[in-house]
Design a protein around this nucleic acid. Structure first.
Length: 805
DNA sequence: AGCTCTGGCGACAGTA
DNA sequence: TACTGTCGCCAG
């Protein structure tokens, strides 16, 4: 009998799993199965007496032998913990190791039955609450829900609006929502985990709605978007805000709708979201405008998904990993857990019980080669190792159960290989479970991308195949990280360090070989080397030689039996300017053999242009100079510095400087946006030597002000601010929302956020020119000693723009 | 409650 | 002024 696909599952009490699925007519089917609190043991670890004791214990529901393993099902969580988890537990006193004794019955069920994860019926949700309450009050369920909107994939729209300001009517509104949700399985909202979902739960409980939220999968689209979009965006412009309207604007070109003039006239100049209460109260056309606003947000979610396909990709990832596509399914550890537990079961392998441990020492990571690039470099060839970390895991057969100890000084056995920099040894005669997993990822990725190539483009089948291919790429790339986190079941710092250090060993050897040929390595990072001094043909031949001679020789020396390492000639730069490690820009000669054209955009890495915490003016000036350096500049010889053309740069600097110092500056141009990486309370205020409290970081101080105003301030919140006086320490800052147009320290803006990023770039490109002269714009401080006491205590008057103008 | 990693740059506050 | 430690964000 085929196992039905599962939409969602949750524990009902300690001993029952409720499984949700849908029949062919789309009706919900609820089924209950016993929850199994399972622990595995190695049968060889159990003697007859222990087995008998387990079998007859009232705490044990089932016991069976599966291959080399004994699978014991306990009656509930406490029974399993008492037997297995605690340090003083029954089995730990006997010194018996347990396996997977932490796995939840839900995961156990999904892994054991191999039940397919259903494709959930998705709906996008947006709610509005009473704007007379603060965000925090709303979030805590202290504000009435005024309205909700649902939009589904077929653009079917449902709306609920409060009729009267009573608990009774709010209950009607909520019951209506829960009823409207019944055809759907997955509920998607922007920032849902932090707002919409808890608000709905809290208000429904207050109103006495009889509903079980576990019947749905709750997905926070913002969390998913943040993770998936990290490497996708080109400039920093898209990274300054995670507000739905801003993301909508960046992704689908719509979202930032100004408040209609008639609304401003009647209710004041605020965003629509801050006017929900007055609009609702005014009724009639005003209430309709509120609904339209809400509708637009709901539909924005659908359109962002249509454009990005991120939720669909998550669905594929979760399907492959036997987990449910809710917010939790976004976590790589969770994904890997599901995938690996199933793989282990199929391969007769079980993983050690997950330990809760203290965060240990950091281990060594990748190598970043010191920069030798100087000025504008021409004709730079770049090679890189394809999927370096996965191929290293395969080549060294790195896995917890293949790891063996070989005492120092003792000869390496034949069936063992050595990670040369970490001195960790691995057996090579039996493939480890981690390499099995990695080869599965790579095999399945290839399978789906081949299938995608064979299918007609644009079809659903082709898109699905493409997503599966991407999903396996994502999993393969996150695998190493999961080895390195103490929160993961697969945490093994010795293996993780070997995964990073074998590449160090190979990259260093590659660079040495290139330099032996008289070439220069200008830069290199983790898996890449930037080489100058050779022709394309020579470099291509070098890459081939590395693959066919150098690496086989090196790997033979350390005993690897299989060579999955592959170096590729990725691209060449026509021009390349390195500012520092991890910060460079350049224009391509070719990419994987395809010759670049005049329209090819420059490649930009790490520079302020790419950063969401730089000021927009700083990004803009840097972008202009990058365009000049990588394209606009006419270079005659390969090394000649075109001093006659420096005038272009000086023009750009002059214009930018005049603008910063003299023109009105908009908020968008000068705002700084940084996120809180932890809850506000966890930022410790340092105590200074004199016993006084140290200053908060700028964005932390502003966050505290905003919190006082009732705004949402939590981990991950982006805080926007303006520096009004950067000449003192600590500097003075205000929330961006307080900016009215004048109160900004222009000198600081130029001297810190606009010019220096470009100055560093120009100094890198033209190291013989002097670029310092453009920096200082702040008039000299008046000598405080010559001032009267009163005058000296006034704020730095020169910092105010009026004085300059 | 649950959490992919390390290397590296630059802004900043504070100290000697 | 030079230096240290913290923080946020990016490269890979």
């Amino acid at each position: 009998m085929p196992v039905e696909s599962v939409v969602s599952a949750y524990l009902t009490g300690d001993s029952t799993i409720t499984l949700l699925s849908r029949d062919s007519g789309g009706r919900r089917v609820v089924r209950q199965v016993p929850a199994e609190w399972v622990a595995y043991f190695k049968s060889s670890d159990l003697d007859e007496k222990i087995t008998r004791d387990l079998r007859t214990s009232v705490y044990v529901r089932s016991l069976r032998v599966e291959g080399d393993w004994t699978r014991v099902g306990f009656v509930n969580r406490i029974a399993r913990d008492d037997f297995c988890s605690d340090r003083r537990s029954f089995v730990s006193q006997l010194g018996i190791a347990t396996y997977e004794a932490d796995v939840s019955p839900i995961v156990r069920y999904m892994v054991d039955t191999n039940a397919p994860i259903a494709k959930p019926r998705r709906v996008y949700l947006d709610i509005e609450t009473d704007s007379s309450r603060t965000f925090v009050q709303s979030k805590n369920g202290e504000a009435r829900i005024l309205s909700w909107v649902l939009v589904d994939e077929d653009e079917r729209v449902q709306i609920g609006v409060l009729s009267e300001d009573t608990d009774r009517d709010e209950k009607r509104l909520l019951d209506l929502l829960w009823h409207a949700l019944r055809p759907y399985d997955q509920i998607v909202a922007w920032n849902g985990d932090n707002f919409d979902f808890p608000v709905i739960f809290a208000r429904s409980e207050q109103r006495g709605c009889e509903v079980n939220a576990n019947d749905w999968l709750w997905l926070d689209f913002m969390v998913l978007f943040e993770r998936m979009n990290k490497n996708a965006s080109e400039s920093g412009d898209e990274k300054t805000s995670m507000k739905l309207q801003d993301i909508g604007q960046a992704i689908v070109g719509e979202g930032k709708e100004p408040t209609p003039p008639e609304v401003i006239e009647r209710f004041g100049d605020k965003p629509m979201g801050a006017l929900t209460r007055p609009l609702w109260e005014a009724g009639g056309k005003w209430r309709d405008m509120l609904v339209r606003y809400m509708l637009q947000d709901g539909d924005l979610l659908r359109r962002i998904e249509k454009e990005t396909g991120y939720i669909a990709l998550l669905g594929t990832l979760c399907e492959v990993c036997h987990i449910f596509p809710n917010t939790r399914g976004i976590n790589p550890t969770h994904q890997m857990d599901g995938f690996m537990l199933r793989l282990g079961l199929e391969r007769n392998y079980h993983f050690a019980t997950k330990q809760y441990r203290d965060i240990g020492e950091q281990y060594k990571g990748a190598i970043v080669v010191p920069i030798k690039a100087h000025g504008i470099e021409r004709n730079v060839h770049v090679c890189d190792f394809s999927s370096f970390y996965p191929s290293v895991i395969l080549t060294w057969n790195m896995s917890p159960e293949t790891k063996v100890y070989v005492p120092p000084g003792q000869p390496r056995p034949n069936n063992v290989c050595l990670s040369p920099l970490t001195k960790v040894h691995f057996r090579t005669d039996v493939q480890g479970i981690l390499p099995i997993a990695v080869s599965e990822f790579l095999r399945l990725r290839k399978y789906w991308s081949d299938l995608k190539a064979a299918l007609p483009p644009g079809t659903d089948e082709s898109q699905d195949a493409n997503r599966k291919s991407t999903a396996f790429k994502v999993i393969a790339n996150s695998f190493y990280g999961v080895l390195g986190t103490p929160y993961s079941r697969f945490f093994d710092p010795a293996i993780a360090e070997s995964v990073t250090q074998c590449p160090v060993w190979m990259l260093v050897a590659t660079i040495e070989e290139a330099e032996k040929r008289g070439w220069t390595c200008l830069a290199g990072d983790t898996d890449s080397a930037f080489i100058k001094g050779c022709s394309q043909e020579e470099f291509g031949a070098f890459v081939d030689w590395c693959n066919s001679v150098l690496y086989p020789r090196m790997l033979l020396e350390v005993g690897c039996k299989e060579n999955k390492i592959k170096l590729a000639y990725e691209k060449a730069f026509d021009r390349l300017i390195y500012v520092t490690k991890k910060r460079y820009c350049g224009s391509w000669l070719h990419y994987k053999g395809t010759v670049a054209t005049k329209d090819s955009k420059p490649e930009i890495k790490g520079m302020e242009y790419k950063r969401g915490d730089a000021s927009a003016l700083g990004r803009k000036l840097q972008a202009q100079v990058i365009d000049l350096l990588c394209g606009g500049l006419k270079l005659n010889g390969t090394t000649e510095v075109p001093t006659d053309q420096l005038v272009y740069f000086h023009d750009a600097l002059l214009t930018a400087k005049k603008h910063v110092l003299d023109d009105p500056l908009t908020l968008d141009e000068i705002r700084i946006s940084k996120s809180l990486s932890k809850p506000l309370r966890e930022y410790v205020t340092r105590i200074k030597k004199d016993g006084m409290k140290g200053a908060d970081l700028a964005h932390v101080g502003v966050a505290k002000i905003l919190e006082g105003r009732g705004a949402e301030v939590s981990e991950g919140t982006r805080i926007e601010y303006i520096v009004v006086d950067g000449s003192c320490s600590p500097q003075k800052v205000i929330p961006a929302e307080d900016y009215t147009g004048g109160e900004v320290d222009r000198f600081y803006v130029w001297e810190t956020h606009v010019y220096p990023p470009t100055q560093r770039l120009l100094e890198a490109a033209f190291p013989d020119e002097d670029w310092k002269g453009w920096l200082k714009v702040r008039p000299a401080k008046p000598r405080a000693v010559r001032q009267s006491k009163k005058r000296a205590q006034l704020p730095q008057s020169t910092a105010l723009p009026e004085d300059h103008a």
